[in-house]
């Protein structure tokens, strides 16, 4: 084991990425899909509104993008801090 992840800043960088990803995760599902739907009701999508689209399809597509982004970003972060698997 090299130096502790806390001291190197690796863990703090990870927490920052996770936090931002979870903010987006909550915004598209609980936000656009449920709580903020009235605000999006003016934007029509195929016979209904954008909030309905986010609740039934959009959020799932964003979830996919988030997981792949996180995997790519973290695997790069591992190498930057030299903590990747060799």
């Amino acid at each position: 084991m090299s130096e502790k992840p806390e001291e190197s800043g690796y863990w703090a960088a990870n927490i920052r990425i996770v936090t931002w990803c979870l903010v987006i995760w909550a915004t598209v599902s609980f936000g656009f899909g449920i709580l903020l739907r009235p605000l999006l009701s003016g934007i029509p999508v195929g016979g209904t509104d954008l909030g309905f689209w986010f609740a039934q399809q959009g959020s799932i597509l964003v979830f996919l993008a988030l997981i792949f982004f996180y995997a790519w970003r973290m695997n790069r972060l591992d190498r930057e801090f030299g903590v990747d698997e060799q």
């Binding site: 084991m1 992840p5 591992d78 030299g82 903590v83 698997e85």
Partner: peptide, 9 residues
């Protein structure tokens, strides 16, 4: 601490 870093898995 060790669970938090991938190295050494």
């Amino acid at each position: 601490e060790s669970v938090r870093v991938p190295r050494g898995a």
